[in-house]
Design a protein around this nucleic acid. Structure first.
Lengths: 100, 100
DNA sequence: GCCAACTTTAGCAATTTAGCTAAATATGTA
DNA sequence: TACATATTTAGCTAAATTGCTAAAGTTGGC
């Protein structure tokens, strides 16, 4: 493995790592139905707003989300809806794991 | 979020977490071209065999790989080639991240 | 300007993860 | 049986992650 290839895998792993958390998966799933502000997401998830904000900034930093301030609120939306394709395959693995 | 839904996201996050590491991404990518034994993978990756073995068992535990012992060697292969679809989207995110 | 609501950042404690080395287990061969 | 090769497991340390609370920024309305 050359250093360049290693760097590529590292960059890809960063993106997957951003998705690899229950709360962040929920956020991505929820944003697939339209943009939401931090307060809306916080109301749905059972953790404090600072925690939600940090999850959002991780997803944003990974390039998966983008945020836009409108007044006092910041609305987030999916920048790459293709990440939703992950769910299908992950669910297939998940179902087979449950049945065996 | 109900507890059942939470558990579902947790299970999905576990699967993504198994993929979210440069070495494990390399392994999945390599296995997309056919099964490989632990020693072959170790020769390609720049880490010790026990470390590779542990990465493999994580991927196996997540349901992504399966291993089969043949003689003294254990060969691993992809159980869900659909995980390869991840690469396309992840690469799209990655490219856009680089250009901005 | 002042206050309230929304969001982010900082700092902390508990947990998890990743790599290593050493030791244990499994298989094939002399 | 004894030994060499292949793999896994165990135990350790260093680093990263997650959640919290408290504090600091932003924005809108009075």
């Amino acid at each position: 493995m050359t250093t360049a290839i290693q760097a590529e895998y590292r960059a890809q792993a960063e993106i997957l790592k951003a998705l690899a958390h229950p709360t962040r998966l929920f956020i991505v799933d929820e944003l697939s139905r339209g943009e939401r502000c931090v307060c809306e997401l916080t109301a749905m998830i059972g953790v404090e707003m600072p925690t939600v904000s940090r999850h959002l900034s991780q997803l944003k930093h990974a390039g998966i989300l983008e945020g836009e301030r409108r007044g006092a609120q910041v609305f987030y939306r999916l920048r790459f809806p293709c990440v939703l394709n992950f769910f299908k395959c992950v669910k297939a693995v998940q179902v087979r794991n449950e049945n065996k």
